[in-house]
Design a protein around this nucleic acid. Sequence first.
DNA 1: TATCTAATTGAATTTTTATTCATTGAATCA
DNA 2: TGATTCAATGAATAAAAATTCAATTAGATA
Lengths: 191, 191
Amino acid sequence: METRKEQKEKRRQEIICAALELFVSKGYAATKVTDIAERVNMSTGLLFHYFESKEKLYEELVRMGLEGTTYPAGQKCEHAIDFFTQFTTQLFSYMKQQPVMAKLFVLMAEAQRSEATPAHIREIALKVNTIEQFVPIIEWGQQEGTIREGDPLVISNAFWCCIQGIAERYATNREIDLPEADWVVDLVRRR
Amino acid sequence: METRKEQKEKRRQEIICAALELFVSKGYAATKVTDIAERVNMSTGLLFHYFESKEKLYEELVRMGLEGTTYPAGQKCEHAIDFFTQFTTQLFSYMKQQPVMAKLFVLMAEAQRSEATPAHIREIALKVNTIEQFVPIIEWGQQEGTIREGDPLVISNAFWCCIQGIAERYATNREIDLPEADWVVDLVRRR
DNA sequence: TATCTAATTGAATTTTTATTCATTGAATCA
DNA sequence: TGATTCAATGAATAAAAATTCAATTAGATA
């Protein structure tokens, strides 16, 4: 049996998870590798047997985030507004079912936003969806009449920031439920 | 003339401003005091002539945030929903007029949320408005029929997170306009 | 069982960052 | 003007954090 290799992989995963928790709750810069090691009951030295450096560990998480947070591919929707409902519903559902998802989501946000993120990591993080991602759908919805008037970029931005704000809290404090997807969608819906 | 004292105070303010910028764009932990000193063209040593420590400087900012972000005292409103409109409008207007406001807002958010914030500073930060702040108004609005159905706490939380998400982006990137207050208010408005 | 390999440790080292300090020069004041 | 005080520097020190490493143990393998 590959007990040895499997074991190693399992341990790597433990570290990854611990790091994710800490990076999200304290921020990358403020988490010490000893914090991480401690959380998985491992000597600090050993952690470096699994990961070359704190930064590489971060990079790996960001790469995971890049793949893991491939957002719900919109099914074919009849109306533009349905896209938003579907998108939000699925995203919230993922976050509820897999706490890790919500955390990865927040990790990515920090990696993208913070000036302190090492440049090459930031680049990776920036490959995921951006603020402009919803613009074309919003334009379509405005013609249709299902989405409110206004600069599509500004609407897209507002919607995305709202989602991020919600995810940011939910990732570290699950005491309060996520809102209904519809509520959030009302941010873009024509009244 | 108090040239001396005035000068000193002015310099302190410069430092405070530089620190605010950096704390918001990189996070508290990732900002080095040399970064701050550099930004105000001052030797690192001198900075300690003005502030006892990096932490004290942070504390002072958080205290400013505590006062500075006393949110728009709701005028008397006829309907609960009007409170939200008024609140959001004023908040956005402040943020637009005074970039510092938006930044303080974000600084406070980090101080509140991050596990890395020194305990006594976090306490100070937590004195400002919380997620529950809107609950009573939402309850009132639900009776009235101006605010949507649902757990008031969850609604309050969603609204606040949305505001935070928007502020967070706007504080560091003013390229994209703030949304209309009404859009955000639609998050809580009954349809 | 003897041997080899990989996991593990904890202490030592290096690197980074915060903080101190002795010293200088300029502004104020007596 | 001479004395005094404070802004200012930059190099020295201290503290914190990351990383390395020599040595040990446990597990696999022959």
